[in-house]
């Protein structure tokens, strides 16, 4: 579904990612793990067009995204939950969710999808008229995910959904990621929390300073000595 070929992104003269090759097959969860500054977020930003590629191609259903306007990429079926969640704090929860469906015109289906999001995240319904800036971190993460789902994406990009959240909330969020995937949405997940990421993914890539240093199925990665030691903390 998504195929990243030789992607290179620079910030000024500094390369953030170099010659990256990643594939996300339809219906799967693919994770990118790595430490701070390894280029995970930059990769996602490249896919959603927020940063420009210096070299390489990003093929989505055969079309090269590096030549598409960023807002059009959303219309093509890719939604991103950005790093830090990116909720609009001065807008209500409901307005945030409605903006998620900005690209859609099917009012009836939007309404029923909204009900579905509320059943997936009941907390959001309780707080729908509250300004989203007043939500807790976990609730904001749920809102950002709900908002991205309101676009009915084919591919959902998740940037560090566990960031800054209590372990119990992280568990809950990842349960929902699995459920979203089981309902048919392909997911590309970026995480520092390798253990959680590998618990939901089918396939994974390990990034270090902008380059892929390991890749494989989740089982292969879980049994890799280097990954066990550095990313999972198992000796």
């Amino acid at each position: 579904m998504l195929k990243i070929e030789g992607l290179t992104v620079h910030y000024g003269v500094i390369p953030a990612i170099k010659d990256l090759n990643i594939e996300v097959p339809q219906g799967k969860v693919v994770c990118l793990i790595g430490t701070n500054g390894s280029g995970k977020t930059t990769t996602l930003k490249g896919v959603s067009g927020i940063v420009k590629a210096k070299a390489g191609r990003i093929l989505f259903e055969g079309k090269d995204l590096t030549k598409v306007d960023p807002h059009q990429i959303v219309h093509m079926g890719i939604s991103q939950v950005p790093e830090g969640r990116g909720v609009f704090p001065d807008l209500t929860v409901l307005e945030n969710l409605q903006l998620g469906a900005f690209i859609r015109k099917d009012k009836k289906a939007i309404k029923s999808d909204l009900e579905e999001i509320f059943s997936l995240f009941p907390r959001l319904e309780e707080r729908k008229n509250q300004l989203s800036g007043t939500l807790s971190g976990g609730e904001q993460q749920m809102l950002a995910m709900g908002r991205a789902l309101m676009a009915r994406p084919k591919l959902l990009l998740l940037d560090e959904p566990s960031m800054g959240l209590a372990p119990i909330i992280v568990q809950e969020i990842f349960k929902i990621v699995r459920r979203i995937n089981e309902e048919g949405t392909t997911v590309m997940l970026v995480e520092q929390n390798a253990k959680m990421a590998l618990s939901v993914a089918h396939y994974g890539y390990v990034l270090e300073t902008g380059e892929i240093v390991a890749q494989g199925t989740v089982n292969e990665l879980k049994n890799d000595d280097m990954i066990r030691k550095i990313y999972l903390g198992i000796h």
């Binding site: 959603s48 950005p82 609009f88 807008l91 409605q98 998620g100 690209i103």
Partner: peptide
């Protein structure tokens, strides 16, 4: 209105508004 809401979102963050598919 929908465009008005998009306008408020854009004034909060152009990048995040773009991620909603809004032509900022």
């Amino acid at each position: 209105t929908k465009i008005g809401t998009a306008m408020r979102a854009t004034s909060i963050s152009i990048t995040n508004a773009t991620l909603m598919g809004i032509n900022t």
